[in-house]
Simulated scan of single mutants.
Amino acid sequence: MKTFIFTLLASISLTFSAGAQQVSLYDREGEARAYIDYDQERTIFMWDGTPVAFLEKDGSDLAIFGFDGSFLGWYEDGTIYDKEGQIVGARKDATIRITRMERMKGIQKMTPIRPITPITPIQPILKSSWSDTPLAEFLYSGKK
């Protein structure tokens, strides 16, 4: 009976996650700290399920905004850049760093209403160096 229940729960979990369009974001230590949920209008969630930021198209750029309305940086080719153009996080396939195995994600919390966003600043020259700011700190800086 336990096996049946486990199999049933596993298949339900796979059914719900099969359609999900989520991209994991890794920090400079190779730890998955956040993810972009494309099914939730390109919302960025921390690994525990807390919504902290979102992507918004601005011309040819994808800008990152916090739910407090502040501009945080850019998302380009799977890499998150801060205002100075330094790398803060990246998808697994966009970094040469060794990444660790992903932990189980927390349940997503309710997403706040998106604010009116300011004009995106001119993008600086993007660098290949990593910022001293940790990914979690960068994303939490725009949390409402």
Score class of each variant (00 low, 15 high):
Asp61Lys: 12
Leu62Asp: 14
Leu62Tyr: 07
Ile64Ser: 04
Phe65Val: 01
Gly66Asn: 07
Gly66Ile: 09
Phe67Arg: 03
Phe67Leu: 03
Asp68Cys: 04
Gly69Tyr: 03
Gly69His: 09
Ser70Glu: 07
Phe71Gln: 00
Leu72Ala: 03
Leu72Glu: 02
Gly73Ser: 02
Gly73His: 05
Trp74Gln: 01
Tyr75Ala: 13
Gly78Asp: 09
Gly78Cys: 12
Thr79Tyr: 03
Thr79His: 01
Thr79Gln: 02
Tyr81Trp: 06
Asp82Met: 04
Glu84His: 04
Glu84Thr: 14
Glu84Trp: 00
Ile87Met: 03
Val88Ser: 05
Gly89Met: 11
Ala90Gln: 07
Ala90Lys: 07
Arg91Ala: 11
Arg91Gly: 04
Lys92His: 13
Lys92Arg: 15
Ala94Met: 08
Ala94Thr: 07
Ala94Gly: 11
Thr95Phe: 02
Thr95Ala: 05
Ile98Asn: 12
Arg100Met: 11
Met101Val: 10
Met101Tyr: 09
Met101Ala: 12
Glu102Met: 12
Arg103Glu: 13
Met104Ser: 11
Gly106Ser: 10
Ile107Leu: 14
Gln108Lys: 14
Gln108Leu: 06
Lys109Phe: 13
Met110Val: 09
Thr111Trp: 05
Pro112Trp: 10
Ile113His: 10
Arg114His: 11
Pro115Val: 06
Ile116Leu: 11
Pro118Arg: 05
Pro118Ile: 02
Ile119Lys: 07
Pro121Asn: 07
Ile122Ser: 12
Ile122Leu: 10
Gln123Gly: 01
Pro124Asn: 11
Ile125Ala: 10
Leu126His: 05
Leu126Lys: 12
Leu126Glu: 06
Ser128Arg: 09
Ser128Glu: 11
Trp130Asn: 05
Asp132Gln: 09
Thr133Ser: 02
Thr133Ile: 15
Leu135Arg: 08
Ala136Gln: 09
Glu137Arg: 01
